[in-house]
Amino acid sequence: MKTKFYLLILSTLLVVTSCELDNFDEPDAIFTGRIMYNGEAIPVARNQVRFELWQPEYETPAPIDVAIAQDGSFSSRLFSGKYELRFLQGEGPFKAPTNAINIELSGGKQMDIEVTPYHLIRNLQFSHSSGTISATCSVDQILTGADAKDVERVVLVINRTQFVDANSGSEGSIAQVDATDISNLSSLEMSVEIPIDPKKPDQDYMFARIGVKMIGVEDMIYSQVEKIAL
């Protein structure tokens, strides 16, 4: 009897103290898309290139960071509303729109953002023979004129997992090698030995990609990650 009495009091309290204000809707809009140039996604290093979403309707807005995945796509779950999309100055291996892009979200939205990369990697071929992964490629200059940036180095990165980039330490690469000669960007060659680590299990595949570092640009531009059977 006593238990029932307590239960009754507790449930009455709960009913009385709850109010309309407690009821928030969950974020309902999914904003997805890719960073594009001429219909082609721009691959970058994972979580290192970002843009910001601002909500100008709020009094003290704070930016929401959206990181770009390594294949050049992004996705973010947000509340419906008006947003301004801005790139930070100097962010990314590309020339991004300098003005804020206004977007209105209600439900889902898919939007590709057009940017101009400084360079792009073309004619990429990977090959494997006896513990060495080799790559040949060319690097095309896309952005010319005053904004053009020169290539500082071209690097072949390999990793055991599909997350491959040159800057995340052992998480992003187990080995990497710079192209020794970058005087002729239309024909580049690199090869890297696969390190043997007795503590890690054997696997018969590797992931690889090429990165290009431009002088004066912090983020590198990459090729898409490729799985190479050994």
Binding site: T60, A62, L88, Q89, G90, E91, E218
Partner: peptide, 17 residues
């Protein structure tokens, strides 16, 4: 920090962050 900028919107952010 964002908390400082919220309290004082006149503070500009540092570059490349």
């Amino acid at each position: 920090g964002q908390d400082l900028i919220n309290n004082n919107p006149k503070l500009v952010r540092n570059p490349n962050q």
